[in-house]
Write a protein that binds this DNA or RNA. Structure first.
Length: 254
DNA sequence: AAACAGTACAACCGCATATAT
DNA sequence: CATATATGCGGTTGTACTGTT
């Protein structure tokens, strides 16, 4: 209702014209990203700085990939959403070329409904039983862990550039590979996590094993499913992002 | 062809956090 | 240290587009 035409206090709102896009693009090319306060003036736009920033990050940025999401991307979104919830910018950080806004829109218009429908179907056809199961819970995985330090290929991550926090910047830097690869490959190789029972002593130092109340789903036919807690899900359950972003391993971004 | 409903997506807003003064 | 300002994020809205009746 008038959102795409209102001009209050001389500030334009609503849909961007091709001319405005060009002005903004030229301005960013000339002065670079950031200093959004100065952008409207420099670009000769009667837009607020936030509108300029949003337009650039969600639409004009050259790295943005447009078009439909392929199956791999959808799978990744679903998995990351399971892990991170509605932290769209973090999810976007793992999907090169996709913006948080795109992913959020896609989730809201496609995935949330279909997943809710699927959950409803599962709900209708299953009974829920609580069972005590043991699974590894490496939240206290210290960076100084002897086990970790002995791993091949371990590279101490460099402090992150303070200004490069945007998803697009993170994509370019990919600072996560070192410890991530250890978690995914070396831990697997070590056999610390398998479906077989192992004693605590066999786990790498720093890993904690504790009983976790976990919901298991038993279908009416009597099959027991673990609600998708296969290897992939276990890895996602691990606080990988927290591990990568802090020295001692415990801290989730807000 | 017109009316209506549903969907997609760009854009705005409020709040939280980071940074500067 | 306190305050002001800038930036980033997620929720929400509104319009354009598309399909259906």
């Amino acid at each position: 209702m008038g959102r795409f035409s209102s001009e209050k206090y001389g500030v334009r709102k609503g849909a961007w014209t091709a001319e405005e896009d060009n002005l903004l693009r030229k301005c960013i090319e000339m002065y670079g990203e950031g200093k959004w306060r100065q952008v409207p003036l420099r670009a000769g736009l009667t837009r607020c700085r936030r509108s300029c920033r949003l337009r650039w990050l969600n639409y004009l940025h050259p790295n943005i990939k447009r078009g439909v999401f392929d199956q791999d991307e959808v799978d990744l979104i679903v998995r990351l959403h399971k892990l991170l919830g509605n932290r769209w910018s973090l999810i976007a950080g793992r999907l090169p070329g996709r913006t948080a806004n795109d992913i959020k829109n896609y989730w809201n218009s496609h995935l949330s409904k279909s997943l809710a429908a699927r959950a409803a179907r599962v709900e209708a056809s299953t009974s829920i039983k609580r069972a005590k199961v043991i699974k590894p819970h490496p939240r206290a995985f210290s960076i100084n862990s002897r086990w970790l330090l002995e791993r091949k290929n371990f590279v101490e991550p460099q402090p992150r550039d303070k200004v490069s926090k945007s998803p697009l910047k993170l994509r370019e830097e990919e600072p996560m590979l070192s410890r991530k690869s250890i978690l995914v490959e070396d831990v697997m190789e070590s056999g610390a996590f398998t479906t077989e029972h192992r004693t605590k002593e066999e786990l790498p130092a720093g890993f904690r094993v504790e009983g976790i109340e976990e919901i298991r789903v038993e279908t009416k036919e009597g099959h027991v499913e673990d609600e998708g807690h296969g290897w992939d899900d276990l890895l996602l359950d691990v606080d990988v992002w927290g591990l990568l972003d802090t020295e001692n391993g415990i801290e989730m971004p807000r």
